[in-house]
Deep mutational scan, measured.
Amino acid sequence: EESVKIVRLVKNKEPLGATIRRDEHSGAVVVARIMRGGAADRSGLVHVGDELREVNGIAVLHKRPDEISQILAQSQGSITLKIIPATQE
Rank of each mutant, 00 (worst) to 15 (best):
36 R>A: 14
81 L>T: 04
11 K>A: 15
18 A>V: 14
61 L>E: 15
88 Q>F: 08
26 S>D: 06
86 A>R: 11
8 R>P: 04
65 P>V: 15
46 V>E: 02
53 R>S: 06
10 V>H: 11
37 G>T: 01
28 A>M: 07
10 V>N: 14
6 I>Y: 14
61 L>I: 12
43 S>Q: 05
11 K>Q: 09
89 E>C: 08
11 K>Y: 13
40 A>C: 11
51 E>I: 09
53 R>E: 06
65 P>H: 08
47 H>W: 01
65 P>R: 07
29 V>Q: 09
50 D>Q: 02
68 I>T: 04
50 D>T: 03
84 I>L: 11
79 I>V: 13
71 I>E: 09
52 L>H: 00
83 I>V: 11
9 L>D: 09
78 S>L: 12
18 A>D: 00
70 Q>E: 14
13 K>W: 08
80 T>M: 10
78 S>Y: 10
77 G>N: 10
71 I>T: 07
4 V>L: 08
43 S>G: 04
8 R>T: 13
71 I>A: 07
62 H>E: 14
54 E>G: 03
81 L>G: 05
57 G>H: 05
20 I>F: 15
12 N>R: 10
16 L>W: 14
12 N>M: 11
38 G>S: 13
81 L>K: 05
89 E>I: 11
49 G>Y: 01
59 A>E: 14
70 Q>G: 12
44 G>S: 05
10 V>Y: 13
7 V>A: 07
59 A>C: 14
23 D>V: 08
69 S>I: 09
75 S>K: 11
76 Q>E: 15
83 I>Y: 05
66 D>E: 15
36 R>Q: 13
28 A>P: 02
29 V>K: 05
37 G>H: 07
85 P>A: 06
28 A>W: 03
55 V>P: 01
28 A>S: 11
72 L>S: 03
38 G>I: 00
60 V>Q: 02
23 D>L: 08
72 L>K: 02
86 A>M: 09
35 M>Q: 14
82 K>T: 09
56 N>G: 04
30 V>Y: 14
84 I>R: 11
88 Q>A: 12
51 E>Y: 05
80 T>V: 10
33 R>I: 01
12 N>S: 12
42 R>L: 11
71 I>W: 09
69 S>W: 07
76 Q>S: 11
32 A>P: 01
85 P>I: 00
23 D>G: 04
52 L>S: 00
28 A>N: 07
53 R>T: 11
52 L>A: 00
68 I>E: 02
63 K>P: 01
4 V>F: 06
80 T>K: 11
35 M>N: 14
44 G>L: 00
86 A>Y: 11
41 D>H: 11
48 V>I: 10
65 P>D: 15
62 H>A: 09
58 I>D: 07
39 A>W: 09
36 R>P: 15
17 G>D: 04
8 R>H: 14
36 R>K: 15
72 L>Q: 02
37 G>C: 03
28 A>D: 04
87 T>V: 12
43 S>W: 02
51 E>A: 05
18 A>N: 02
9 L>A: 04
58 I>Y: 07
69 S>Q: 15
86 A>T: 10
10 V>K: 13
25 H>K: 15
47 H>Y: 04
48 V>T: 06
54 E>M: 04
57 G>P: 00
11 K>F: 13
24 E>P: 14
31 V>I: 14
41 D>Y: 09
38 G>H: 03
30 V>N: 05
36 R>F: 04
89 E>Y: 10
43 S>P: 00
75 S>R: 08
12 N>D: 12
57 G>M: 00
22 R>S: 08
88 Q>R: 13
45 L>A: 12
29 V>D: 03
39 A>F: 11
37 G>N: 09
52 L>E: 00
32 A>V: 09
12 N>P: 09
40 A>V: 11
82 K>G: 11
49 G>W: 02
83 I>K: 05
17 G>S: 03
60 V>C: 14
11 K>R: 11
75 S>M: 13
84 I>A: 09
22 R>C: 14
59 A>S: 15
60 V>S: 03
89 E>K: 15
46 V>W: 00
81 L>I: 07
50 D>M: 01
8 R>C: 09
50 D>E: 01
79 I>Q: 04
26 S>A: 05
22 R>L: 12
22 R>D: 04
85 P>F: 00
23 D>I: 09
72 L>T: 05
69 S>L: 10
69 S>F: 08
76 Q>D: 15
76 Q>T: 14
52 L>Y: 01
85 P>R: 08
78 S>A: 12
26 S>Q: 05
34 I>V: 12
49 G>H: 04
77 G>F: 05
88 Q>H: 11
33 R>V: 05
49 G>C: 01
70 Q>S: 12
41 D>K: 04
84 I>H: 09
21 R>Y: 08
68 I>F: 03
39 A>V: 14
26 S>I: 04
56 N>E: 06
63 K>V: 03
49 G>S: 02
28 A>I: 06
82 K>V: 02
86 A>P: 06
24 E>I: 09
67 E>T: 06
44 G>C: 05
20 I>H: 01
36 R>M: 07
35 M>A: 14
56 N>M: 01
55 V>I: 14
27 G>T: 04
18 A>E: 03
39 A>L: 14
21 R>L: 10
59 A>F: 05
36 R>Y: 05
12 N>A: 09
61 L>Q: 15
38 G>E: 05
63 K>Q: 09
66 D>N: 12
78 S>W: 10
37 G>Q: 04
8 R>F: 04
57 G>D: 08
45 L>K: 11
43 S>K: 02
24 E>Y: 08
83 I>W: 01
65 P>M: 14
68 I>W: 05
65 P>C: 14
21 R>P: 00
29 V>I: 13
33 R>A: 13
31 V>W: 02
65 P>S: 12
10 V>P: 10
78 S>R: 10
39 A>K: 06
28 A>Y: 03
85 P>M: 02
13 K>L: 11
64 R>L: 07
23 D>E: 09
64 R>I: 03
32 A>C: 11
42 R>D: 04
38 G>Y: 06
21 R>Q: 12
23 D>C: 09
58 I>C: 10
78 S>N: 12
31 V>Y: 01
37 G>D: 08
5 K>G: 06
63 K>N: 05
59 A>G: 13
54 E>S: 08
53 R>M: 12
43 S>D: 04
71 I>F: 07
72 L>Y: 04
75 S>N: 10
37 G>R: 03
65 P>Y: 08
69 S>T: 13
47 H>N: 10
32 A>N: 12
83 I>F: 08
85 P>Y: 02
11 K>D: 09
58 I>G: 03
9 L>F: 10
13 K>N: 13
10 V>G: 12
78 S>P: 14
66 D>L: 07
13 K>Y: 10
87 T>A: 12
16 L>P: 03
49 G>I: 01
58 I>H: 12
24 E>T: 12
66 D>K: 10
29 V>P: 14
77 G>D: 14
45 L>D: 10
